[in-house]
Amino acid sequence: MNDMEGRIALVTGSATGLGRAMAVKLAERGAEVIINYSRSQVEAEEAADLCRATGAQVQVVRADVAEPDGCRDLADAAGRRGRLDILINNAGITRHARDHSDLNALSKADFMDTYAVNVVGPFLMLQATKPLLVAAHGQSGRASAVLNTSSIAGIKGIGSSVAYAASKGALNTMTISLARALAPAIRVNAVCPGFIGTRWFKDAMDADAYAGTVSAIESITPLAVASGPDDIADAALFFVSDAARHVTGELMLVDAGMHLGKARP
């Protein structure tokens, strides 16, 4: 399916995990893709090769989305094509402090760093790319698509830390605010995953602990599964496709029903 042929897509934090999965799926559907990373150059090139294997044009840009200069560098990469049809704000960080009652587990710096990437970063990216997104709308007559990668943490107040949950809650609110403000030229939505089996979790625990986490997730989700990057990416790409052309300001939970809790037997 080449329904995105001719479109330019930029995915922040796309060297690994969900960002990589979304970038590859965009490439498979015909989009030209800009891969972004801040540290993982080898993995970013691997992601780019996966996209190129589909026949897509690919650029790889190192940039820190928490900094205005980094966001301008990414906008410049898209600017060389004269437009930007799709922006996915996927870059994110956390500070692991799962006992939310331990208020000494997080510092002011932890909060500021988390917000800088998870909240300020998407704002700066939109600030830098808005002219290109508007230009794409003018050329195609189709609203450009912005997708923010949020989390169930921003809705349920759960997850790796209070700072992370709070940052994703702020991102959700910003998604709604900007969807209203930037219409009709730009649509803004957010996908809110639950557990995703990526190194995000794996790096925070040993192999046995990770296996136990996967088993626990399967036991508490109504669909009895632990999601992987492709599962979330398939749902996420709905928002940047023409199927969602009349959708803006929406937050979609993709968590195998985790937010529902499991029915008692």
Rank of each mutant, 00 (worst) to 15 (best):
I86D: 02
S14I: 05
V146S: 03
L26H: 02
S241D: 07
E43N: 10
I176K: 12
H96N: 10
R72L: 12
R95D: 06
N104D: 13
V119G: 05
P265A: 13
D99A: 13
T12N: 00
G30R: 05
S101M: 13
G141T: 13
A207F: 03
Y115R: 02
A235L: 09
D69Q: 12
M125C: 15
E250I: 10
G159S: 13
V61G: 05
R29W: 04
V65W: 02
A236S: 15
G249V: 03
S167D: 06
N89E: 11
A190T: 04
T16Q: 12
G154E: 03
V119F: 06
F201K: 05
L124C: 03
D99V: 14
G249A: 09
P131W: 08
L103V: 15
G55M: 04
V191A: 07
R83Y: 05
P265H: 10
E28D: 13
G138V: 08
A91N: 03
M205P: 01
T129M: 08
D203Y: 06
I196F: 00
D99Y: 04
S227F: 06
A53W: 07
A23V: 11
D231P: 09
L103T: 15
M205A: 14
N118D: 11
I220R: 08
A179N: 04
A263C: 11
T248C: 07
D49I: 02
L171S: 04
S177N: 14
V11E: 04
I217F: 05
F123L: 14
E46N: 14
T114F: 01
R95Y: 10
E218F: 00
A204D: 14
V254M: 06
V214W: 02
M112V: 14
A153K: 00
T221G: 03
D230W: 04
A63I: 08
P222G: 07
T16P: 00
D64A: 13
A31Q: 04
V24R: 14
E67I: 05
E43G: 06
T221I: 02
K156A: 15
